[in-house]
Amino acid sequence: MRPHLLALLAKEPAHGYELKQALEQTFGSAYPSPNIGQIYVTLGRLEKDGLVRSVDVEQSNRPNKKVYYLTAKGRDALTAWVEEPTEGPRVRDEFFMKLVLAPLTGIADRMALISRQRRHYLSLMADLNDLLSGTDPRDRVAGLLIEGAMLHLQADLDWLERCQEDLA
């Protein structure tokens, strides 16, 4: 979450709760609602590393709030994050380990494992379908996130089929 907060602060200084709202508004319904405690912990670490600084702003009838802003070092860190290539997703290998190892022990046969996994993936896909149809079509960021998850799941299913062809 560190670079995400840096990016939001590069736009304008903000306090913790504003950052939470900005994340929710930008990513829409597809984003797991960020935990405010986690945001404050992350801001504290960024400040300790000199990537952000904070000032206390007085409020009438309320305790002071801390407004965070980006430092030059923070801006450099953000630029580095944007410019470095992003790692591709790792193959989700938990199931593959089961598939390769379980039959050796006689606990399960591969065909049964693959069949169960295929239905599980389709259940997940059904959830994503429901999620997409419940998402405002104008919310392109949320829509694209869900479509991305669907495409990954499709790849998992295609791979499952390859495993079935070669191993089962």
Binding site: A30, Y31, P32, D127, D130, L131, L145, I146, A149
Partner: peptide, 9 residues
Amino acid sequence: GTAGEVIDL
């Protein structure tokens, strides 16, 4: 019903 369970950013 919640996206957080299927999408992990």
